[in-house]
């Protein structure tokens, strides 16, 4: 990476205590960083801690029953030690987020214009009129037709794809330095997905915003990301530039994920699935969390491997890396 990262997460761990007193470690040992103008994909299956990680970065996790440790360095300051007040000043301004559910993420009782204006007025010393002009301009930038008219529409008048554009307009209205997008296209039709991804890519190029894109979809990763962090059972298990990851995956879980992608250039048969299930995170195994499902398992896997740099901007959490020799 050429530039200093705008966001650098180090050894992030999040634990929840349920009402029954049971502790669940949703995330631990998560480290990644993203530089201005670049897109980092965080991939993994449901429940692997992707969303919890993003909410922890934003400081949006519920405060009761939650413990967050590690460091979240944003623009040189550790967000985990900042006051709620400082975080509020950053959120929506230099740190923005869009969510998976465009249908429910906008308040049904206010016009989309009002909701964008609210974000601008909160962070910029501008009047309502000026903010409204800015909001219309943002709606135009996310390619919403007739933005000045749409400004007065309530969310229910818009389709899911249009609502996600509004969310993006709102998030980018104050020109954030980092945009976290949590499964932004999962709830949308495939054609709309492509449009939204194109839009995000174009806007990133225009604004130089760093993007953290959270997804379970490797197709989306290949499409828009520069770098990837693969998460499994609350940990980052592999980190790599995107082409490298697809060419030479260095963690057995990544290998399994790539193997489960349908491909046209192979004979039709059953899709490869990863055998077994994700471990219970209230009682995670002491060793490698993937060991129980791993075809390359050895006795050493009973102790937890670290996420180690293996050169070429890559890191993996596997005793047996590099995996090339095992392929035969």
């Amino acid at each position: 990476m050429s530039e200093a990262p705008i966001l650098s997460v180090e050894d992030l761990a999040v634990g929840f205590t349920g009402p029954d007193g049971r502790r669940t470690r949703a995330v631990d040992g998560v480290s990644f960083s993203v530089a201005p103008g670049r897109t980092l994909g965080i991939v993994g299956e449901s429940g692997c801690g992707k969303s919890v990680t993003s909410l922890a970065v934003m400081g949006l996790l519920p405060r009761t029953g939650t413990s967050v440790t590690g460091r979240v360095l944003f623009d040189g300051r550790d967000l985990l030690t900042e006051s709620e007040r400082t975080l509020r000043d950053l959120r929506g301004d230099r740190l923005a987020m869009i969510f998976q559910e465009p249908m429910t993420s906008l308040n049904p009782s206010y016009t989309i214009g009002d909701q964008i204006v609210e974000a601008i007025v909160r962070h910029r010393a501008v009047g309502k009129r000026e903010a409204a002009e800015r909001a219309v301009e943002m709606l135009a930038r996310v390619r919403i037709p007739e933005p000045a008219r749409r400004f007065h529409d309530y969310p229910h008048r818009l389709s899911g794809g249009m609502r996600q554009r509004v969310m993006i307009a709102m998030a980018l209205a104050c020109e954030p330095r980092l945009l976290i997008a949590d499964e932004p296209t999962t709830a949308l039709d495939v054609t709309i997905q492509a449009q939204i991804l194109d839009l995000m890519r174009a806007l990133r190029e225009e604004t130089g915003t760093a993007v953290v894109l959270i997804t379970h979809d490797l197709g989306v990763v290949a499409e828009v990301c520069d770098d990837v962090a693969v998460m499994y059972a609350g940990q980052v298990v592999e980190r790599a530039p995107v082409e490298e990851l697809f060419r030479f995956p260095q963690h057995p879980y990544t290998v399994g994920l790539l193997g489960s992608l349908p491909r046209f250039d192979r004979a039709r048969g059953r899709l490869a699935a990863i055998e077994g299930t994700v471990p219970d995170m209230s009682r995670p195994p002491a060793g490698c969390r993937f060991a129980a499902r791993c075809p390359f398992r050895i006795t050493r896997c009973e102790t937890m491997p670290d996420l180690v740099e293996i050169g070429g901007d890559r890191a993996t959490r596997c005793w047996r890396a590099p995996l090339e020799e095992l392929a035969a």
Partner: peptide, 9 residues
Amino acid sequence: YVRTARAKG
């Protein structure tokens, strides 16, 4: 939408 409102700061 409340989460969105919080994310706006």
